[in-house]
């Protein structure tokens, strides 16, 4: 499904956050990428979500080599990957109601007629009431907003879902509820999952397989090149 090979990425070419990392997610597979905060795993997730152009390395999605990121990627490629971020407050346009939030991808892709039906369907599956759908982000809790963000990521039926610390701000019950929504969707659609996070217990319980970001990476940021650990393949070159 997703093949990242020797990806180097960051915000400064001289000091990339991600160095030479490879990662593989098979069709229908759920992979957990485990690493401390600030290690670059979120940047890697953005590369995989076609939102951040890597400085080096190759990526294939469903066997197709990716040539461009963000708006340089064809719309079909972008919408094949759904993404949920850590902070629901920053992930939601503050001016839009939750209903509009979930509907945005449908509108962006010219599927306006599907809006009422799909939004209702998604709202039901993530457990948002009709009354909540009419509220704007500032009037709902983090948990409720993250439910809407997950619904938005699922509304175009992605073949790969990327959850970047999706539950880091949430309590145990909401975490379990959102994971259950993702797993129901995956069971029904056969979609693959890349769950990025720092909670080992959670990712091991959730995913088929977890991959550890190199242990030498400390929370201080990239002190040296990242090498691949455990299940990363192919084994990255030693520093």
């Amino acid at each position: 499904m997703l093949e990242l090979t020797r990806i180097t990425a960051g915000y400064d070419r001289r000091d990339p956050v991600v160095r030479d990392v490879s990662l593989h997610v098979g069709a229908g597979e759920a992979v957990g990428l485990l690493g401390p905060s600030g290690c670059g795993k979120s940047t890697l997730a953005k590369v995989a979500a076609l939102l951040h152009r890597p400085d080096a390395g190759t990526m294939t999605l469903d066997g197709t080599v990716i040539r461009g990121w963000r708006h340089r990627a064809p719309r079909e490629q972008r919408t094949a990957v759904g993404v949920v971020f850590q902070q629901p407050r920053l992930s939601a346009d503050p001016r839009l109601s939750l209903r509009e939030l979930i509907a945005q991808p449908l509108r962006s892709t010219g599927r306006r007629r599907d809006v009422p039906e799909r939004v209702a369907e998604l709202a039901r599956s993530v457990g948002l009431s009709d009354e909540l759908l009419d509220r704007r982000p500032h009037a709902v809790s983090d948990g409720q907003l993250q439910r809407a963000c997950l619904a938005r990521a699922l509304v175009l039926r992605p073949r790969l879902l990327i959850c970047d610390e999706m539950t880091a701000m949430l309590d145990a019950s909401t975490t379990a509820a959102l994971v259950a929504v993702v797993e129901r969707y995956r069971a029904a659609s056969g979609a693959a999952l890349l769950a990025v996070g720092h909670d080992r217990v959670l990712l091991e319980r959730w995913c088929d397989r977890t991959v550890r970001w190199d242990e030498r990476e400390t929370e201080k940021g990239p002190a040296g090149p990242v090498t691949a650990g455990g299940g990363l393949r192919p084994p990255a070159a030693p520093r």
Binding site: G127, G143, Q144, D171, A172, S173, T174, T175, A176, A177, V179, A180, D199, V201, L202, E204, R205, W206
Partner: peptide
């Protein structure tokens, strides 16, 4: 009890509703 049961190291089942 529901909160504890929702932990991934336990049942990992959410409390229904909000």
């Amino acid at each position: 009890k529901g909160l504890l049961d929702a932990l991934p190291e336990r049942e990992f089942t959410p409390i229904p509703g909000m």
